[in-house]
Design a binder for these strands. Structure first.
Length: 325
DNA sequence: AGTACCGTGTCAATATGGAG
DNA sequence: CTCCATATTGACACGGTACT
């Protein structure tokens, strides 16, 4: 049973927004692609786990756990009465080689050490367990969900630490018949008491490089015609409500200037004054928490991101989007 | 006190979506 | 298709706050 949803990371949402509003540098493009690939690997993991079934275990996904002064990120934690299995998901593709403990791809040493990462993640949980004077088991596996991943190694002990795609279903099936009782409840409570926010994520882009305005949901074009209630894209003829495009802009703003308070003036500037202040103001009241400070009133987007905002069932929009294609 | 914003309210007009 | 209810808009107005 999945305990929480799999969500795009802050980094991915940041690059998604930045890509829509500026030219990415080569390095940003690489970071974006790597982040997206990682997320796709996690989704693939979820998909296969769903298919095999996870009714006999509890699964946490994308968790940041604060232990002592440090925060550790976990892609997936599989919990039953036996203990916790840490699954570190690596969406590697292509030929990899491990020699003398070092990882190579296409002959080049890669920048991360998956085994060390896994050991560190497992060690942190063992520390948490010991501090709680408990006795459950903490194990760990490196999961490679891509069917295009090949590993060659001189170290046969490595295979016990990894699960490749062809073994993944069998690995998940091992969790069948697991018990979810008091011990599991204890572990979940222990973990939930230490859940933290992503402490590494900071963003503060140079405003001048950003394209101001609102853009088409369908094709990302900024060439939009304003009509009452809607914008119509001149490229793909999609028709979108003011509210949809403003929610997208609010979501972009949140991740491009993460943690920085947003004023109405700065947001109006962000969208290039493509709508009148009153329309924007009403949207802000509807979708933001308002911190009234006289002239310096700030607004905080209520939702995690755009997708969450439009999926909220309690929201009702009279006017609809008409996306083409 | 004066100024420049910012926030809030009212209300007629109307494009839209859905019902008939 | 036509018609109707109404959510949203835009104009106009007013009160409040921060700063000089």
């Amino acid at each position: 049973m999945f305990l929480n949803p799999r969500l795009k990371s802050h980094d991915l949402l940041f690059y998604d927004a930045l890509e829509k509003r500026s030219e990415l540098t080569k390095q940003e493009n690489r970071r974006h692609a790597a982040t997206l690939k990682g997320f796709e690997g996690e989704c693939l993991y979820d998909e296969i786990f769903n298919d095999v079934g996870h009714g006999d275990v509890l699964v946490y996904r994308d968790l940041y756990i604060k232990i002592g002064e440090s925060v550790t990120q976990y892609d997936a934690l599989v919990i039953d009465d036996e203990g916790i299995a840490v699954n570190e998901i690596k969406n590697y593709t292509g030929d990899y080689k491990v020699e003398g403990g070092d990882w190579y791809r296409a002959g080049r040493r890669i920048s991360e050490d998956p085994v060390a990462q896994l050991n560190r993640a497992v060690g942190k949980l063992i520390g948490l367990r010991n501090a709680a004077n408990s006795s459950f088991r903490v194990s760990g596996k490196l999961i490679f969900p891509s069917d295009d991943f090949y590993l060659h190694t001189d170290d046969n002990s490595l295979w016990s630490k990894i699960v490749v795609r062809s073994d993944l279903r069998r690995y998940f099936r091992q969790f069948r018949g697991g018990k979810i009782g008091n011990k599991s409840q204890f572990i979940v409570r222990l973990l939930s008491e230490h859940i933290a926010e992503n402490p590494y994520f900071k963003s503060d882009v140079d405003e001048t490089r950003l394209r101001k305005g609102v853009y088409c949901e369908q094709c990302s074009s900024y060439n939009l015609l304003k009509t009452r209630f809607h914008f119509t894209c001149t490229e793909c003829q999609s028709k979108m409500t003011n509210e949809t495009l403003l929610l997208r802009a609010l979501s972009d703003y949140k991740y491009l200037f993460y943690g920085k308070p947003m004023t109405r003036v700065s947001f109006m500037n962000f969208i290039g004054h493509s709508l009148t202040f009153k329309v924007v103001y009403r949207i802000l009241l509807k979708h933001c928490y308002v911190d009234r400070k006289g002239k310096k009133t700030t607004y905080t987007f209520k939702y995690r991101n755009f997708e969450e905002a439009i999926s909220k069932a309690e929201l009702y929009f009279k006017y609809k989007d008409h996306l083409k294609g």
